[in-house]
């Protein structure tokens, strides 16, 4: 059976570190970085990229529209 595999790209400099994407991710893909972006926010990043299913929940709920989502079947 084909497996759905996703990936996200976070526009780090636009991220404000609100964490809403993190709590909306059904697979635990996203975590907050230990370092800050140029605005001083702990930005979101795909800490566990292998878990991503490309559902786009993070991007849909992101107030700043900083997440781009890709998905494919393998």
């Amino acid at each position: 059976m084909a497996k759905v595999k996703g990936s996200i790209v976070v526009d780090i400099d636009r991220c404000k570190g609100c964490e809403i994407c993190m709590v909306s991710c059904p697979t635990g893909t996203i975590a907050m970085a230990k370092e800050v972006n140029h605005k001083g926010y702990f930005y979101a990043y795909p800490a566990n990229p292998d878990l991503c299913i490309g559902c786009a929940n993070c991007a849909v709920v992101c107030p700043d529209g900083v997440i781009t989502v890709y998905r494919t079947k393998i």
């Binding site: 996703g6 990936s7 490309g54 997440i67 989502v69 890709y70 494919t72």
Partner: peptide, 20 residues
């Protein structure tokens, strides 16, 4: 068995599902 797919294999225009 398909080969393990790397992130760079997924991030392609044809796989885009959501962008601003």
């Amino acid at each position: 068995m398909p080969q393990a797919t790397g992130i760079n294999d997924i991030i392609k225009p044809e796989n885009l599902v959501y962008k601003r």
